[in-house]
Each structure stands twice: as C-alpha cells, then as structure tokens.
C-alpha cells in the first residue's frame, strides 16, 4: 500500500490541469489506467476480440462515451494532440464536452484538424482524410457484441466467438437478402478482423467500413457500460461480411456537398424548410472546412463568395 500511495501522490500534481481539477493527470487514477492498459495490450494482440475490463464510473453518463474516454485517458500523454468528433463534427455538444474534459484534466493540446491530431476520439464516424501511421483512433462503442441483437446472452455469444461459430450472423444477413434483395444493415455493419473474430465497428455508417481495412492508424474501441475493450492494429485485414453473389457495397450520394462540392464523402441531410427543401453537406466538418479554405465552393455557396463558410 505504501508504494501505491507514494506513486499516486508523487504523480498527482502536474501542470495546470491538476491544479485546476484536483484529479490525476487525465482524470483516472494510476491503478485504473494500468488495468485498462493491460486490456488494451491484449486487445491489440488478439485483433477483434473483446477484452473484459472493470470499467469505472466516469463523470459523464454511460452511453455518452465512457468507454472511449477511459481508453483515451489511459493512452494520452502530455505531448498528444487530441481531436474529438461526434457524427463527424468537432462542434457537436458531446464532442465539445469530451474535448473540454481532456483539455482540463490532462492539459493536452486539442485540434479540429484531422492531420494535426495524434489521437482522435470518435462517435459514429471515421474522418474522411486518410489517417497516417502514429495516429490513434478511439471509438466510443455502445454495444460491442456484434451478435448481441441476435443472441442476448453473453454466455452464448462468448461460446460462439470461442468456436468462431458465426453462422447465426450469416443467416441473419442472408435473410435480409431473401426478404429485401440486399443486406439491410446500414451502420454498425459487422466485419471480420484478420480472418478470425467478427467485430462490431460501432455505429459508424457502413460507408466508413473500408477505411478500417489496412489502416495505417491504430484503432482502439472502448465500451464502458458493457465493460469491453477491443482493437484493430494498423495494417490489419478488416473485411465487411458479405456473400459472393451479394458483395458488400457502401452508400453513394447522388449530389456533392452543398458547401464544399466534395464527392465520395458521407453527407448529412439538412432540412431547410417544411416544403421538402433540403441540402446535403459533409458530415466531417473539418474536411468540409479545409476544402472551403482551399477554395472549393458548393451550390449553396457558389454565389456567396465565401461569406458564409464560417458557420457558428
């Protein structure tokens, strides 16, 4: 106990962050970080396997990113530059709240630019800009078990993973095809990691699935309420489940972003009025802003000569 106490107190006060909060660097105590770090290492060694961990109560509600926050807090260091997105945007309230949490408790630099970030915590999207080696993408995961909605029992799904028995998933996907002519899963679309574990990519649109395959970045997944951590190392095969006669496809949008004219990106639909008026804009706000800064103009901005690209 004496050693533990020595470590905790010796490490506690550092930088402005700690003076402001009275909490340890990045909020979590060292004992908790060690437990999470061990889980992360095993997750990396067994790609796609969900490592159980003793998730702690965090000062934000379960379902709001407690798993991602615990992973980020255990990995982040004073030299990291953190980006936080929700729905692809740095500006959504929960992203702002989590970014502020780390700026306060870890004193780290934050950014909205994908390229500048060393760590990116995300909910529901993978950035459009390709990630690079050395970057870490941390996903907030609500339901880590890809088989959960087919089989609610943990004891059952654990056995299915142990045996690599994924028939139940293939049957479900094939039933979709029989009924609708195609697979009706549009987000949280299951993937097979390194030829072994079937894994939930978290509720990202299936549009983002191909970005997981052979990504140069390390991908870490944290599910706080469900007490699971898992990982996809860089340069790892990530295959979206499909069938030879029904290959996996991603969403395509007919029109480009109305603000930056980008194509081949994921778009949000913005309802403009109650008469069916709508427009489509980039879900990745940083990507959109950088394109506009580079002079790209979508239909909504074509005549406005850059006066409205600085939306608040």
């Amino acid at each position: 106990m004496s050693a533990e106490t020595t470590i905790e107190t010796a490490g506690a006060p550092r930088g402005a962050a700690d003076a402001a909060t009275g909490y340890n660097f990045a909020y979590l105590d060292e004992q908790t970080k060690r437990m999470i770090r061990r889980a992360i290492l095993k997750g990396i060694a067994i790609p796609g396997y969900q490592v159980p961990f003793a998730s702690r109560e965090m000062p934000m509600p379960y379902g709001w990113g407690t798993g991602g926050v615990q992973v980020t807090a255990s990995v982040i260091g004073p030299d990291d530059v953190l980006k936080v997105i929700d729905q692809g945007s740095d500006d959504t309230t929960n992203a702002v709240s989590i970014r502020k949490f780390f700026a306060r408790t870890a004193g780290v630099a934050t950014t909205t630019h994908t390229a500048e970030a060393t760590m990116i915590q995300t909910r529901h999207r993978i950035p459009e800009a390709p990630l690079r080696e050395g970057q870490i993408l941390v996903y907030q995961v609500p339901i880590p078990e890809p088989l959960r909605l087919l089989e609610p029992r943990e004891t059952e799904t654990r056995t299915l993973h142990a045996l690599a028995e994924y028939g139940v998933m293939h049957v479900k996907l094939y039933e979709d095809i029989a009924q609708h002519g195609h697979i009706a899963k549009t987000y949280d679309y299951p993937v097979e990691v390194n030829g072994r574990y079937v894994m939930a990519p978290s509720p990202t649109p299936k549009f983002d699935n191909p970005k997981m395959e052979m990504s140069p970045a390390l991908q870490l997944f944290g599910a706080g309420r469900e007490q699971r951590i898992y990982a996809v190392p860089p340069y790892t095969r990530v295959r979206s489940l499909d069938f030879e006669d029904h290959p996996f496809t991603i969403q395509r949008f007919a029109e480009p972003c109305a603000l930056c004219a980008a194509t081949g990106v994921y778009l949000d639909e913005v309802v403009l009025d109650d008469r069916g008026g709508r427009m489509f804009v980039c879900s990745d706000s940083d990507h959109c802003e950088e394109r506009r800064a580079a002079g790209h103009r979508g239909t909504m901005l074509a005549g406005a000569a850059g006066t409205e690209n600085d939306h608040a």
Partner: peptide, 13 residues
Amino acid sequence: PVIEAQGAFRAVM
C-alpha cells in the same frame, strides 16, 4: 510515475 508510466505504456503499445 504518472508521466513515465504513460510513456512506457505508449512504447509497449
């Protein structure tokens, strides 16, 4: 301890 453990963990990770 806090910062060095973080650095060592990152290296191992």
